[in-house]
């Protein structure tokens, strides 16, 4: 090891003037860059994006083959591939983020971050903002790409629907990634975080739905409500642009607001958890 000329004799760097702490926006930008670098979400989100795009393109190919050519059919051909892309991307990317945040907590990077940025609330707030921005940007890219494929492949009748699907799907993806981040922070380990997400989002709602037929009516109603407000159901509502023509934007908005509520709640708990956490 060699101490170079940029340091004073003996390897001691020259004193710098005291610089102010980085503002929250600057922290958010730094966190965004970390997500996009080696060790962040870059590789995993690329894999997820390719998978989700493949699902969308495959759905488009099948639907176009089966299409009867009328207006209703054209809307389905234009919207369902984008819906399938955005919902599969949001779900898989949220699991990836939960895994990443859990690993980040367990292997100490969060500890290092807390040492250099002692304002823990600002730090976690910046990380939440970065994850949301990353989800939004990658969501726009992957659903937009499938949207372009759909439009170029003869789905031109549904351009507005495709655009709506890209916007709603990307927003839903951003909220799901925030949810995944919060679960990862709360669980404190990658495997636990992924299992918790799978249980909460898929296994419990599915099992509850199946079991409700065997339950008394009052209990079954409560179970149905629980399934209705589960994140995956809300995600499905938030990305289903194909129903907008028939039923309006009510379901779509309900889904997005529901996801926003879950994200806000879990984010607040995660911020609180990190604020008092000992390392």
């Amino acid at each position: 090891m060699t101490v170079r000329a940029n340091t004073r004799a003996g390897g001691v760097p020259a004193r710098a003037t005291s610089r102010p702490p980085v503002p929250v926006v600057g922290l958010g930008v730094a966190e965004c860059r970390r997500l996009a670098r080696q060790g962040g979400l870059r590789n995993a989100s690329l894999v997820v994006a390719v998978l989700a795009a493949a699902v969308g393109v495959a759905a488009f190919a099948v639907l176009r083959y089966l299409s009867s050519g009328d207006a209703a059919s054209a809307t389905v051909v234009a919207s369902v591939p984008v819906e399938a892309t955005s919902s599969s991307f949001a779900l898989l990317a949220a699991l990836v983020v939960a895994n990443w945040a859990g690993r980040d907590s367990q292997r100490g990077m969060l500890g290092v971050s807390v040492v250099v940025v002692p304002r823990r609330t600002a730090l976690v707030g910046a990380q939440l903002g970065a994850v949301a921005a990353y989800g939004l940007a990658t969501g726009v890219l992957v659903t937009g790409l499938v949207g372009v494929v759909v439009l170029a492949g003869g789905g031109g009748a549904g351009a507005a629907t495709v655009l709506g699907g890209v916007v709603a799907g990307s927003a839903a993806a951003a909220l799901m990634l925030v949810l995944g981040y919060s679960v990862g922070r709360l669980c404190g380990g990658p495997m636990v975080a992924v299992l918790a997400c799978l249980a909460w989002w898929m296994i419990i709602p599915l099992a509850s739905g199946l079991a409700s037929a065997l339950l008394p009516e009052v209990v079954a109603e409560a179970v149905a409500w629980f399934v209705d407000v589960s994140p995956v159901t809300l995600l499905s509502q938030a990305t289903t642009v194909s129903s907008v023509t028939a039923t309006g934007v009510g379901d779509l908005v309900t889904g997005l607001v529901g996801l926003l509520g879950w994200s806000a709640l879990l984010s607040a708990v995660a911020v609180r958890r990190v604020a008092v956490q000992s390392f």
């Binding site: 610089r19 102010p20 702490p21 980085v22 600057g26 922290l27 930008v29 730094a30 966190e31 860059r33 970390r34 670098r37 290092v112 971050s113 250099v116 940025v117 730090l123």
Partner: peptide
């Protein structure tokens, strides 16, 4: 690089 950015270096 991350440490540089969050500390404004």
């Amino acid at each position: 690089t991350y440490l540089c950015q969050v500390q404004g270096l």
